[in-house]
Design a binder for these strands. Structure first.
Lengths: 366, 366
DNA sequence: TTGAAAGCGCTAACAT
DNA sequence: ATGTTAGCGCTTTCAA
């Protein structure tokens, strides 16, 4: 009997094996090990011992076939390599584990087709629920389907029009208004904004300017919502919005953000301040500033959406809009698990607070 | 019939439903949908249409019960919020998806008990294989068990003594020797090193000094291995090692790294250079330098293990030892999937190359 | 309190 | 090429 370097054959012990070893029926063994039904204490011990000896591990697939629950939650994020999602994922994972759930992770790369595929995969694997950061705020049929067929969905970071589901959000418009308001208060009148504006609807911003009614925020991606806040802050301050200062990249890509920032800096007159709407944009914009040897804040005030550890490493420290990212993750997981336990409660939209951390990168223009 | 806000009842269509709808047997429906066995094209179409109409989704649990394969790989990392693991996870996820696998992610927080629990969970969920970054290089019984019982294990970033398994590694000793050698070449004679040295064995370094035989690297965690490289570089250069310059934190915690760095800076004579062995240590050490208004590189040369994007944001840019983190992830996933397809091949240890990126934070001491 | 039997949804073996 | 049957490992009736 030759032994291969890594044995792949030996059959794993089943509950029937344990039952035989303990001299009881499979049903009883199941009850003893699974904490359901009635078992005499003495028997329970005997079964436990047998299980131990055989190195028995329950097959949760078989269990799930019957119970209809896998104790697994699916997560569809845009990109786990992005610190924003990484941190949120940590929050989700911590809560999930605490409550006995595993987490299946997938990346959508902001692509609706990939997201749909990912959701399909999760449904096939019979996850109990899904936490998703939708790639689009309108193409959400697959999410509605999932929810309708009994797999609850929790929206993460992004709201969606016409889908009644639990959601964990921050008020991007308000936060952005605060951040840009800070710059306006300092006296800035030419503030560049760097944002993806990937979704078609986010590009309709020319219509927002001076219009009495704000667009439905649920139709916007965070990037668009933050631009809306930028516009609202300008209008509240009575400062006209110069469309040339609005730099869209069309994708989550630092290189393009860098280029767009360079474009902005070349304007005449140039901006006296810049606002980047997330950490990817910040990355590219900051690089552009360094490449051009822009002095911050003397030449340009800098405000970033999303606080990152390095923002206190650079000189000057960067003024940033902080979001409770880890908590957004824990709350999302808690909402989902709560719904699994009581499916009937009304869906809730939880809005978590943000905070502008004023540091050295902002000052009055000169 | 009141409709609840989120329907949780409606039974999902099964293959039997599809078969009935298409007027064939369940077996045939399965063949048509699952791409196995023979089906007439005409029938295949009919079944497909029925499946479509009913919104049928295969239940992969049921399939896995029979095939014994879940098309899922488990990942046990220390902390997904750490950019190192986040990036690796992205690599794993990309390859996994490409080859039709899902990924279950768990964090061990460098705790063997948690790791063991995580592995147990993954085994119950019948993952096809596990990628793990072991919390200990000696307490690895649970990993050996998994491998022995037919769930292959790929070691990620950390080798393990006495476990024959595939592994994706970098040569930490060599890389560290290069990094510290760079400082020694510049003329530095007092180089502080900040490392976790959590594992008991990593603390046996006093024995390594001047000993002809190096300890078995497979018994060391990366932190210990990098210290070994530090010592070897010193010995090669004929520079004595001052134990006071070796600062262990005992945990992956930037606050402690900061404190240990402050201690090092207070030494008399102070170090002229510092080497941090991973991004968490770097975080704390860099903070300490900023708090003390240390001028880099005039007062202190700085070399970091692990390149991070912000290292080109700060002034001066930080000299860093780069590792192919994303690729380590893709390679780990590829090795695992290869083994799933051909279990008999001999386990392989893949060593990926690293690179010292010299930037402005290092210069000759003055 | 225990056991026998049925069955979750699917695929594999065996007929035809 | 298709259908019938059995069964993956477990939990849940139902009887005893």
């Amino acid at each position: 009997m030759a032994s291969s370097p890594i044995n792949t054959e030996r059959r794993r012990a089943t509950i029937t094996d344990v039952a035989r070893e303990a001299g009881v029926s499979a049903a009883t063994a199941g009850r003893a090990l699974g904490d359901y039904g009635y078992v005499r204490e003495e028997i329970r011990e005997r079964v436990r011992k047998a299980a131990e000896e055989l190195g028995y591990r329950p097959n949760s697939l078989a269990r799930s076939m019957i119970t209809g629950r896998t104790n697994t939650i699916g997560v569809v994020g845009a990109d786990i390599a992005n610190p924003f999602f990484a941190s949120a994922m940590r929050g989700i994972g911590d809560v999930a584990r605490r409550d006995g759930f595993g987490t299946i992770l997938t990346n959508s790369d902001e692509d609706v087709a990939l997201e749909r595929e990912a959701v399909g995969l999760l449904l096939q694997k019979q996850v109990d629920g899904i936490i998703v950061s939708p790639a689009s705020s309108v193409e959400t049929g697959h999410l509605a389907d999932a929810a309708r067929n009994g797999t609850p969905v929790v929206l993460f970071d992004r709201d969606v029009a016409g889908l009644t589901a639990d959601a964990v959000l921050t008020d991007s418009v308000d936060a952005s208004r605060t951040a840009v308001g800070h710059l306006l208060d300092l006296g800035h009148r030419r503030i560049a904004i760097v944002a993806e504006l990937r979704a078609a609807r986010d590009m309709e911003w020319p219509n927002w300017i001076g219009s009495a009614t704000a667009p439905d925020v649920r139709m916007l991606m965070p990037s668009g919502a933050r631009l809306l806040g930028y516009i609202q802050a300008h209008e509240a301050a009575g400062v006209p919005v110069d469309p040339a200062l609005i730099r869209g990249t069309g994708s989550y890509d630092p290189a393009t953000a860098r280029e767009q920032t360079l474009e902005a800096l070349r304007l005449d007159p140039p901006p006296t301040a810049i606002f980047t709407v997330d950490n990817v944009m910040t990355h590219g914009a900051y690089q552009a500033c360094r490449d051009m040897s822009i002095r911050i804040p003397e030449d340009l005030s800098f405000v970033a959406y999303d606080d990152m550890e390095w923002m206190t490493f650079v000189e000057p420290n960067i003024t940033a809009l902080w979001q409770p990212v880890y908590d957004m993750g824990t709350v999302a997981a808690e909402m989902l698990i709560r719904r699994l336990r009581s499916p009937e409660v009304e869906p809730v939209r939880r809005l978590l607070g943000t905070k502008l951390i004023v540091r050295g990168s902002t000052m009055a223009p000169r």
